[in-house]
Design a protein around this nucleic acid. Structure first.
Lengths: 191, 191
DNA sequence: TGTTTTTCTTAATCTACATCAAGTGTGCAT
DNA sequence: ATGCACACTTGATGTAGATTAAGAAAAACA
């Protein structure tokens, strides 16, 4: 198991000494999730921040009508968690499912807090990570209010070009916020 | 000018010594904004985190069609900023306007970063603040995808009961994501 | 390899909400 | 007080996108 991907991910915002890297790595757990298996389901208490090494996860909620709404995809080099549940340690509403066989690193909430104490740089790192998530989340809110489904799709294509290829279209439709039927029509533009 | 409100706000997450409180307060600026005046407009680079003491602000974007979309209200005891612009120091898209005569405290980005260096507890505080904003933003995303306008309105009423009273209905409509006309009809339920 | 399951498409109909237009309060500046 | 924005309402009509249903294509799995 190589930890290079996650160390490089940290290195985008903080510099760690070799010793600090070792401490960090000792706090991680490895896990493999088969396609269609779940890392977290609705009602669970989220105990980990998850970092994807290979494969792809999706995080989604299910509404009263049973419709799924994709909140995020997590390809390699991305973090994912049910932030509400992770922070409050109450049952969450997110489902995290593997779209393909996926390998992840898990950092437990307890270990994450130990890192904040032992190596304050981690507080810096996760502050920045959270700030960037917030900006992305707010931009998506604005897009949902301001743009048509088609414009949101074009944005998605620009922002996540690598994802487009090996993602079922219905998952993209759900992320964009439309039905698979409408999405199909939209792409084949014959309204 | 009393700084008690902002010190109590900090105290929700971190404990400061009197000396640290003094350092913090010395970094703040006071500002008064009259009703309908702007603290920030589209295209500006956001230089401050703003904390509201009295009055009320609203943050909104304007889409291609000239329609305003309210992203947040900031009543007393709330923080507001164009996070995208504040973090990237590039021109932002948010307008921040006073809905009534408003008194705020400004913490410049430069001073905020000095605080992170001098008093690491501030990094902890703003991490938590950002985490909570992220959870709220994601929940609003989910609500926008899962709920009807009416359900979103009911949620808003429950979540911000104090705001409802002295806020123009059209501003609430915009926050909910519907036109004033539809909002009016909805409230007077005679579809 | 064939069988099953899931994804994608197409078409008809429907609905939540927008748009346009006009009229009625209501607060605030002169 | 009076005039004037501006907030709010109400009605008629328009539309983006949903729903339902069914078949075609592709992928998963045994």
């Amino acid at each position: 198991m190589s930890f290079q991907l996650i160390l490089d991910n940290l290195a985008k915002h903080i510099h760690l000494t070799p010793d600090e890297q070792d401490i960090f790595i000792a706090y991680l757990q490895t896990k493999k999730i088969k396609r269609k298996q779940f890392l977290l389901t609705d009602g669970d208490i989220c105990k980990y921040s998850t970092f994807v090494i290979s494969g792809c996860l999706r995080g989604y909620t299910v509404d009263k009508g049973g419709i799924e709404h994709v909140l995020s995809f997590a390809p390699p080099d991305w973090w994912i968690a049910d932030m509400y549940s992770l922070l409050s340690q109450k049952p969450g509403i997110l489902n995290i499912e593997a779209l393909e066989d996926t390998e992840v690193l898990l950092l437990s909430k307890a270990n994450q807090e130990k890192l904040y104490q032992q190596i304050p740089k981690f507080e810096h790192f996760f502050r920045i990570l959270t700030e960037n998530s917030l900006v992305a989340s707010q931009q998506r809110l604005i897009d949902g209010l301001s743009l048509t489904a088609e414009e949101r799709y074009n944005n998605f294509c620009k922002r996540y070009p690598t994802l487009i290829d090996h993602l079922p279209l219905k998952q993209i439709a759900s992320y964009i916020g439309v039905t698979p039927e409408f999405f199909s029509r939209m792409r084949n533009k014959r309204h």
